[in-house]
Amino acid sequence: MIDSRTAPYAVLVLRLALGILFLAHAGLKLFVFTPAGTAGFFSSLGLPGWLAYVTIAWELIGAVALILGLWPRLAALALIPILLGAIVTVHGPAGFFFTNPNGGWEFLALWIVALLGVALGGDGALALKPTTSATR
């Protein structure tokens, strides 16, 4: 049985943790690897370099949406393709364990499961819910 008093806070914890993780990964691409370096890495994988800029923006927007609770269910689902792409292109060939050279895909799979938890769990506590004219 789900405790309806605490479940929204469980989703809040997931939203905040995932949002912070995505901010950290976007920050890594922005400040450590640099956007140009990230684009070069994407190109070395056979992906278009411009996709790196889209990925950085997607991670930043998704992170902020999760943290603030702006359409968090949609944000959670929208972030899953980034992780699937990372599994297919980089981490999948390295194997399951994240400690393998080039990192495995276990950590990314856990992120996907957590994002699905947010998508299924609802907006959570303290979510900023945009109003529409239909709900006013």
Results as ranks from 00 to 15, higher is better:
Leu51Thr: 08
Glu59Asn: 04
Val113Gly: 07
Gly122Leu: 12
Leu77Gln: 05
Ile2Glu: 14
Phe107Tyr: 15
Leu18Arg: 02
Gly49Glu: 12
Phe98Thr: 13
Pro72Glu: 12
Ile2Pro: 04
Phe42Leu: 06
Thr132His: 15
Trp58Lys: 06
Phe41Val: 07
Val88Asn: 06
Pro48Gln: 11
Pro8Gly: 12
Lys129Gln: 15
Leu126Ser: 11
Ala36Val: 10
Phe107Ile: 04
Gly69Asn: 07
Ile67Met: 12
Leu83Tyr: 01
Ile80Asn: 05
Ile61Pro: 00
Asn102Glu: 15
Leu23Tyr: 09
Leu116Thr: 07
Ala52Pro: 01
Ala65Leu: 08
Phe107Asp: 00
Leu21Gly: 09
Gly49Leu: 08
Pro101Arg: 14
Arg136Pro: 04
Thr55Ser: 15
Arg15Ser: 09
Ala36Cys: 07
Ala57Ser: 11
Val90Trp: 04
Ala134Ile: 09
Thr89Ala: 13
Val113Asn: 04
Glu59Arg: 01
Val13Ser: 15
Lys29Tyr: 02
Thr55Ala: 15
Gly122Asn: 13
Gly95Asn: 03
Gly122Glu: 14
Ala109Thr: 12
Phe41Gln: 12
Arg73Gly: 12
Ala24Ser: 10
Ile80Glu: 07
Leu16Ile: 15
Trp50Gly: 07
Leu110Ile: 07
Ala86Gly: 10
Ala75Glu: 01
Ile67Asp: 00
Ala7Asn: 12
Tyr9Leu: 11
Val88Phe: 12
Pro81Ile: 06
Arg73Ser: 10
His25Val: 05
Leu45Ser: 11
Ala10Ser: 13
Arg73Trp: 08
Phe98Asn: 07
Trp111His: 09
Gly103His: 10
Gly103Asn: 13
Phe42Ala: 04
His91Gln: 07
Ala109Asn: 09
Leu23Glu: 05
Val32Asn: 07
Phe42His: 03
Gly46Thr: 09
Ala26Glu: 00
Ala26Pro: 00
Val32Lys: 09
Leu116Ala: 13
Tyr9Gln: 06
Ala24Ile: 11
Ile61Gln: 04
Pro72Lys: 06
Thr99Gly: 13
Ala75Thr: 09
Thr34Asn: 05
Gly85Glu: 03
Ala26Lys: 02
Ile20Thr: 12
Val88Gln: 08
Leu30Pro: 03
Pro93Lys: 03
Ser133Val: 14
Ala65Gln: 10
Ala78Cys: 14
Thr131Val: 14
Pro35Arg: 08
Ile61Asn: 03
Leu110Asn: 11
Leu108His: 06
Gly121Met: 13
Leu68Asp: 04
Pro93Gln: 04
Thr38Asp: 03
Gly19Gln: 02
Thr55Ile: 06
Leu70His: 10
Arg5Tyr: 13
Asn102Gly: 05
Ala65Tyr: 01
Pro48Ala: 09
Gly85Asn: 06
Ala114Pro: 03
Val11Met: 10
Leu83Ser: 00
Gly69Lys: 05
Phe41Pro: 01
Ala125Arg: 14
Trp71Tyr: 15
Thr6Arg: 14
Ala78Pro: 02
Ala86Asp: 04
His91Trp: 00
Ile112Cys: 01
Leu84Phe: 03
Asn100Phe: 03
